[in-house]
């Protein structure tokens, strides 16, 4: 029997997240013959708007609307999904702050297998599904096999599956609010979203970024990066550990939980290339990576790479460029 696959449609006030068009591709990789249904939660207006858009890509769309669902609180949506989904269903979610919040607990509640952050599938066969994932900060890949007898909850890495831009599915929207409801009383209440602070430089506007990661090793070494940036006329950005250590302000962090940058040239210096970091680099810039580990995942995405010590190479670059400029 073909699998019954559901794609959770993430949206912001009715505007679909990029993952909405990627999950259908993921579903087809799991089972080309599967029935694929989009599930949309929201308040009346946003659920309608998102469901209408999802119907452009998905033939079947289930809508659950309630004024208490205006903001996607996983603690409310999890029990509703647990009730709504048919037995043995496979639910796909994006690997993001919402999917990570909702998914693991839902798998437990449904007695389903949980696969986190899948990047590829080998297809469901004989009640089993083989998925590919990355471990050890992307340094190695693993094949995992999920037993589908109780269904599965799977988060899919953003960008790992091509967006299905075809459209024109003319899907039917079905109101499932009664089947999923009522909205339970949650012990976690959403209060508000506090927007990120704006910093002294706006790295989203920079053409050239000297971006440093944990390889910079100490706060004192930051100067080396700023010297290089000054010499070549770039701004300094960074990966998350630099911000966690409070060496640079949050507004300089590139990544899914930081800024999205669109430079012409991106220099990744001592950055391993985690997907949460790469998720903040858009517009396909020319990327130069310097890393002492020849197996660092960053070399898979960079255009040009140097295996070496940034603490040695950066000062030399600065010196040569300064000399050159005279």
């Amino acid at each position: 029997m073909a699998a019954q696959i559901f794609a959770y449609i993430a949206h912001k006030s009715g505007k679909l997240d990029d993952s909405a068009l990627e999950l259908t591709t993921a579903a087809k990789k799991i089972d080309a013959d599967a029935s694929i249904t989009a599930v949309v939660f929201g308040d009346a207006a946003t659920a309608d708007a998102a469901a209408a858009k999802a119907a452009n890509t998905y033939k079947a769309v289930w809508k659950v609307a309630d004024s208490a669902l205006a903001y996607p609180n996983a603690e409310l949506i999890r029990p509703m999904l647990a009730k709504l989904l048919p037995e043995g269903a496979i639910l796909l979610l994006p690997t993001d702050s919402f999917g990570m919040d909702l998914g693991p607990g839902l798998a437990v509640k449904r007695n389903a297998a949980y696969i986190a952050d899948a990047i590829d599938f080998e297809g469901a066969k004989d009640g089993k599904l083989v998925a590919h994932r990355q471990e050890y900060a992307g340094q190695v890949y693993a094949k995992v096999e999920a037993n589908l007898s109780g269904g599965a909850v799977i988060t899919c890495r953003p960008g790992a599956f091509a967006a299905d831009e075809a459209g024109g599915a003319g899907g039917a929207v079905e109101d499932k609010s009664a089947d999923a409801g009522p909205v339970p009383a949650a012990k976690r209440k959403f209060i508000e979203v506090v927007e990120a602070e704006v910093g002294d430089v706006d790295i989203t506007k920079s053409d050239v970024l000297v971006s440093i990661g944990r390889g910079i090793e100490s706060q004192d070494n930051l100067e080396i990066a700023f010297d290089l940036a000054k010499a070549i006329g770039a701004d300094v950005s960074c990966s998350r550990p630099i911000v966690d250590a409070k060496w640079l302000e949050k507004s300089r962090q590139v990544g899914t939980s930081g800024q999205t940058v669109k430079p012409k040239v991106y220099m990744a210096l001592g950055i391993s290339g985690a997907f949460q970091h790469l998720g903040g680099i858009k517009g396909n810039p020319f990327m130069l990576a310097i890393n002492k580990n020849p197996k660092a995942p960053i070399f898979q995405v960079a255009d040009v790479g140097v295996v070496g010590d940034i603490l040695e190479i950066m000062p030399e670059l600065t010196e040569k460029v300064t000399e050159m400029k005279g």
Binding site: D96, S97, K189, F190, I191, E192, S251, S257, G258
Partner: peptide, 13 residues
């Protein structure tokens, strides 16, 4: 909770 874009989602639990 840290959400996308460096924004913070405040909750009471």
């Amino acid at each position: 909770r840290e959400i996308e874009g460096g924004n913070q989602e405040m909750n009471e639990i």
